[in-house]
């Protein structure tokens, strides 16, 4: 029971870290450009498909990973330059609708190219199997690798935003876009770069998650909605909020699904305990979100809307 608990805790961490890769791009794009992008989940899907296709073609998972980054970043940059750019000065309704249209295009396009059957990504050989983490507790090595890789990317992102020249420009763009344009920063290119960066992170998350689940059309949508919950909890536009929100949602979701049926089993018969427990667990993160919003309408780290 205890090792099961630990395993679920690590699974929660893994889902939190993956959510952060999604949510950070989403919140960055909103913070800098003021754009709500529903098609972010499609870029996640593009990353997963690129990784699966290239890995199947070349036999190398690593090339697949590079492909996922490249494909998502290129798709993101193209979409930004062709379509998204026209939406910055539009209201949110137009943004929602245009990016909803992009989802239709991406999903049907992918189904057209790859068919409706899910693809599978296999883990590189040396990352298969389990690793012993103290005593008799074993955990799949690859999942551990994903957690570490995800955390490394998160640290990298914080350094990029906090320490580099590009990061300074991104933060300045959030604060006052007119001013940095006046100071000679090419704002159009900055926007394309930010969008492509967010897309690359989403694509990477897609490739990682694609190895633990199947790669299929529509895979980005549940994650997208979770990422929305994350950034709403964390405060839209805040990277720190995205991190805290991701971990909160990852742990709440995983532990809720694991613990609630057990909790209800203490005073209900097993079958209804499972039914009620899992039904409630599936709603838990939304309840957490409602609570956070009730107490802080602009999220944990958000500035007043």
């Amino acid at each position: 029971m205890f090792s099961l608990f630990l395993e679920q805790l690590l699974n929660g961490l893994q889902s939190g870290v993956m959510l952060f890769l999604m949510a950070s791009g989403l919140t960055l794009v909103f913070g800098v450009m003021g754009l709500i992008n529903l098609a972010h989940g499609s870029l996640y899907m593009v990353g997963a498909f690129a990784c699966a296709a290239v890995a199947a073609w070349t036999g190398s998972f690593w090339l697949g990973l590079v492909a996922s980054l490249m494909a998502a970043a290129i798709a993101g940059a193209l979409v930004e330059m062709l379509i998204i750019r026209r939406l910055y000065n539009r209201d949110h309704l137009d943004q929602v609708l245009a990016t909803f249209a992009l989802i239709l295009i991406f999903s049907e396009g992918t189904r057209w190219i790859f068919g409706s059957f899910p693809l599978f990504l296999s883990v590189p050989d040396f990352l298969t199997g389990t690793v012993v983490l103290g005593g008799s507790f074993e955990y799949p090595l690859f999942r551990l690798a994903i957690i570490i890789a995800g955390l490394a990317v998160a640290v990298g992102l914080f350094l990029l935003i906090g320490k580099t020249r590009l990061g300074i420009r991104i933060r300045a763009g959030e604060a006052d876009r007119g001013m940095i344009a006046a100071l000679g920063v090419d704002i159009d290119r900055l926007y394309t770069v930010v969008f492509a960066l967010g897309a690359a992170l989403a694509g990477l998350a897609g490739a990682f998650v694609g190895t633990t689940q199947s790669v299929q059309v529509g895979m980005g949508e549940p994650v997208l909605i979770l990422a929305f919950v994350v950034i709403v909890i964390g405060g839209i536009g805040s990277i720190k909020g995205a991190l805290v929100g991701s971990l909160l949602v990852g742990f709440t979701d995983t532990m809720g699904r694991f613990l609630l049926p057990h909790l209800f089993a203490t005073f209900l018969d097993p079958s209804s305990a499972t039914a009620i427990g899992s039904a409630l667990a599936s709603m838990l993160i939304y309840i957490v979100m409602a609570l956070v919003l009730f107490l802080r309408p602009s999220g944990l780290f958000g500035t007043a809307a």
Partner: peptide, 28 residues
Amino acid sequence: ITLRTSGVYFIMITLAFAQMIYYFAISW
């Protein structure tokens, strides 16, 4: 709950509540 917020928050939260009911229907 949702009308306490506005703009993007409102869009995302109405979406999230609908998803909550959706997942409830699936797992019930």
